[in-house]
Design a protein around this nucleic acid. Sequence first.
DNA 1: TGCCAGGCCCTCTTTAGGGCCTT
Length: 207
Amino acid sequence: MADCDNALNVVVLDFETTGLSPSYGDRAIEIGAVKLKNGEIIETFQELMNPGFPVNNFIAQYTGITNSMLKKARRCNEVMKSFAEFLGDSNFVAHNASFDERFLRSEFEMISRYSIPDYTCSMLCARRIYPDAPSHKLSSLVSYKSIREEDSYHRALQDSIMTSRLWTTMINDIREKYNTGIISFSMMKKLSRMSKKNMDSFFRIHP
DNA sequence: TGCCAGGCCCTCTTTAGGGCCTT
């Protein structure tokens, strides 16, 4: 297996945004990410970005990111160019990745980058691996697995760090439960879309 | 100013609807 297909060599990212839908004009206001090598954080990225219009009160309260903070930030396009260099062609992971993927694709298109690396979703994986968790939102899973918390939720770097800890915890739990060796990214991606009843047979076939 | 989406998953399903998750 190539190093790039090792599930422990990925970028874990998280966006804070002005809303839920880039197709309705929402923009990213913060990107946070960690680069994992063999499951350890070797590099981080965090930057606020000015979307060019004010965020509403809900977003300011939800994230703690205020319009005065955003006024001082670089514009989205400049930040995304820097982030594109950080991400490179690394596979990436996010919690409820379909959300972050839409914003990554949208912001990348605005800097004329029309492709994104392969990605998978920690939430979908957690639904398979921890079906009995009371909830599969990030904060609940962090609590459920007794993962060390950062100072706050809903800030991009802190959420990406906690997602990376959840990600490595899931991989370690799979390795212990199924007595498997190195877990590949492609295996985790298949897992995220697998029916629950096929979990055990999948890891017997892919030791 | 306030509003908006979309994919997954379950079930009282599949000719559908609603909860979960992300901001």
